[in-house]
Design a binder for these strands. Sequence first.
DNA 1: CTAAAACTTCACACCCATGTCAGGGTCAAG
DNA 2: CTTGACCCTGACATGGGTGTGAAGTTTTAG
Lengths: 114, 114
Amino acid sequence: MRIGDLSAATGASARSLRYYEEQGLLASSRSGGGQRHYPETAVERVSLIQSLLSAGLNSATIQDVLPCINNEAIRTPWLAERLTSELDRVTRQIDDLTRTREILAGLVERYRVD
Amino acid sequence: MRIGDLSAATGASARSLRYYEEQGLLASSRSGGGQRHYPETAVERVSLIQSLLSAGLNSATIQDVLPCINNEAIRTPWLAERLTSELDRVTRQIDDLTRTREILAGLVERYRVD
DNA sequence: CTAAAACTTCACACCCATGTCAGGGTCAAG
DNA sequence: CTTGACCCTGACATGGGTGTGAAGTTTTAG
C-alpha cells in the first residue's frame, strides 16, 4: 500500500507517517520512483505508535521500546526497566486523570441547567 | 502570601503563577510596591488549575470553566455543555490510556528478564 | 542604612508532533 | 502522450505551557 492508503487506514496524516519513518519507528520500501510502499502489517504498527504517542511516550522512547515487539532477542534488564518505568508513568497519569474527572463530574453535577 | 510562598506551596513555578494570572485564571492583589499577594485559598485554586491543565484543558477553556466554581449565577446551558464535553473528552482519554497501559503491561510481561 | 533575597516586567527560547506550502517527480487511466 | 491524482523533499510555522536571563524595584534581615 502507498502512503495515502496507510494514512486512510490509520487516520495518521501522511506527514506523520513520514515523520515516524524519519524517527525510525516505521519502515517502508520504495518503488523505482522513490514512493513509499508499506506491507499490511504497517497498519497495526502505526496504530501502536499512535497509542504510545498519545500515552505520552516521545518518539525516542518509542524507538527504544518498539523493536522488542518483533525481536525477542534484545531482551535486556535495561529494556525491562525502561518499560516498567513507562508503565508506572502511564499508571500515575491515569490515576491523576481519574481524579480530575471526578472534579469535572462534580462541576457538571453542580452546574447542570435543570 | 507572596508569589514565592505560593510557588512553594503548590509546586508551580513563579513563572507559571504569573502566566495563570495573565490568562485570567488566578487573581492577586498588589502591595504598594507592586508585588503580588495571594489569599490562602489560592493554594487550592492553583492545584485545581494544575489538575485541569494536566488533563489537557487549555487555559482558555479553564478560564471559561473555572469561574463557575465561585459563582453559581453563571450557570448556563452553554457552560453545562462545555463541561460535559470536556468530561467526555477526559473519559475517552482515560479509556485510551487504559488500553495503552495494557499494551505496555503486556510488553513488560514478555520482556521481563527473568 | 545597607546588603541580600525576593520580586517586577519584558522578551526570547524550547519542545515536538503536526500543519502547510513550494517546487518538482511518479504513476495509472484514457 | 497527456492528464490528474498522488507522492517526494525541504523548510518554515504553530501551539501553549514553561524555562531563562536581563535590568530594574521592593522587601526584609542585620
